[in-house]
Amino acid sequence: MDSSAACLSESIIFKGLDARDIDSLVPLFSRRTVVPGEILAQAGHGTQFFFLLEEGALLVAMEEGRAVVLNRPGDFAGLSMVSHNGTNTATITVLEKGAVWVVSCLKILDLTGHDTQMAAIIMEGWQQFCKEKAPFCSNLAETGVI
């Protein structure tokens, strides 16, 4: 198991998937090291990528001054937490040096947009993750991404 697979297995969102499904996701992710102060996504810009945290810490700054700090391996800066209708709703800034797995927004949406067991597992994990990390936004998990 390479490190992206390890990171996916550790993530609350993807850990419900079996090993074969995780292996199928691995090619979608590419690793990138990040440094403090680096902006990974800017609010108002078109959404291109989501980020799966392997190491370090990310600040997801939302509207009205709200924010979430993602600092555990497997935390996911993506979907409705950072994007709405193809536009970034949050600015993602690196707080601590580390590494993220970058995944194309469209590929993830394609994956979760179908009525498959994998999509159901991912969305269930996502709801759980949102409930834990961003409970202030109750409909975050249900809100459509596009």
């Binding site: 403090p36 810490a57 600040l59 700054a61 001054g65 924010a67 700090v69 600092n71 707080l95 601590e96």
Partner: peptide, 27 residues
């Protein structure tokens, strides 16, 4: 406290390594 606002204020105040330090305070 709004964390993005605190980060911005730290940057404006010229504090060193605001990102790393805010992360330290959260941790």
């Amino acid at each position: 406290i709004s964390l993005p606002k605190l980060l911005r204020m730290a940057e404006l105040s010229g504090l060193k390594e605001p990102h790393a330090n805010i992360n330290f305070l959260v941790k």
